[in-house]
């Protein structure tokens, strides 16, 4: 049960990463590698501030802002200096490595005694559950603290998803989406597509940094290497999510990314729980992702549900 709760919690936290990747990868068709640096950036900024006793909400907010700056840098390199999108991401990600080390002052910042958002969540849960240490869920002893943290991460993911949905339906959000679909049309309407890209990447990396900040507070430390490989998993979550919902419609894409991230973490947890040879873990994970991608299609073929791909 702990493992299930842990997998769901990490799934919700990393769904923010998936949402960030969704913006750059799906809305802008921009392969933004900055994410691997900005997730660590978020973690590094939040962790460093938290150890100095900053208010957790403020620390997380500053982490998001730092992530947005990083995304904006990538956007500016791409639009102003005409550097290939992939390369501008690589440049910023590489620079962030050193920056993150400078922010933390060392490679790993433990958060054991710091007050974090998770501490707050535990406190809130403590009030909710009447101070009980453990709660019985269908026969399993579940730590009230873990449950509160899970609830918090779910609320955070859901809230961000809803805000994102509302945002993309505003004029600004619509213009941003249009930039991804048809930049020429956007320019014809007198909107700077370059600014839109810069802003979009900033929002994307802000979300990624938020994910990193929450992850650091959940796992209790920030490490300079924690971003490595993250982009791949973010992409996997987005694509699994698309396969799950079938339609490329904004609200479904957002929900899909969320579900994809959670499902992906659950699959990893199963691979772990079954205690297979540790060297095979990645192989098993790859097989699971493969299955997650083709199963919806197979089910559709079997006629259980008609999945049509069309743009809304």
């Amino acid at each position: 049960m702990t493992l299930l709760i842990g997998a769901l919690t990490i799934g919700f936290i990393l769904s923010l990463l998936a949402l960030g990747v969704l913006i750059s990868f799906r809305i802008y068709s921009f392969s933004d590698i900055t994410a691997e640096g900005s997730i660590t950036l978020g973690a590094a900024v939040a962790a460093t501030l938290l150890t100095k006793g900053t208010n957790p909400l403020l620390a997380t907010g500053i982490a998001v802002f730092a992530g947005m700056l990083a995304g904006a840098c990538t956007g500016i390199l791409h639009t102003r200096f005409k550097i290939n999108g992939l390369l501008s991401g690589i440049l910023v990600m590489t620079a962030l490595y050193s920056i993150n080390l400078h922010i933390m002052g060392r490679s790993n910042v433990p958060l054991l005694s710091a007050t974090t958002l998770m501490t707050w969540a535990e406190g809130a849960g403590n009030g909710l559950f009447g101070g009980a240490e453990n709660i019985n869920v269908a026969g399993w002893e579940v730590s009230a603290r873990e449950l509160s943290v899970l609830g918090f991460s779910f609320l955070a993911a859901a809230l961000v998803g809803i805000i994102l949905y509302i945002f993309f339906r505003t004029d600004l959000g619509t213009a941003m989406r249009a930039t991804g679909d048809n930049p020429q049309m956007v320019r014809a309407m007198g909107i700077s597509d370059g600014n839109m890209i810069v802003f979009g990447l900033a929002v994307s990396n802000g979300l990624v940094a938020l994910s990193g900040a929450l992850l650091a507070q959940y796992q209790g430390f920030s490490d300079v290497q924690m971003g490595i490989g993250m982009l791949v998993w973010g992409l996997a979550s987005v694509i699994i999510g698309e396969a799950l919902v079938g339609l490329k419609q904004l609200n479904l894409l957002i929900t899909g990314a969320l579900m994809g991230s959670v499902l992906f973490r659950l699959l990893v947890a199963i691979a772990l729980r079954w205690g297979m040879d540790p060297n095979d873990l990645k192989l098993i994970t790859a097989v699971f992702v493969f299955l997650a991608l083709i199963v919806p299609g197979l089910i559709a073929k079997a006629g259980w549900k008609k999945v049509g791909v069309r743009n809304a």
Binding site: E141, T255, L263, L266, A269, K305
Partner: peptide
């Protein structure tokens, strides 16, 4: 459109919970 995803999440969660069945305690 969410049914499939939710079902799969429920299914994987159940698999995970089932693996943990031995840790269950009577209420």
């Amino acid at each position: 459109h969410l049914i499939l995803g939710l079902l799969l999440i429920a299914a994987t969660s159940s698999v995970l919970l089932f693996s943990d069945w031995s840790q269950r305690r009577s209420g």
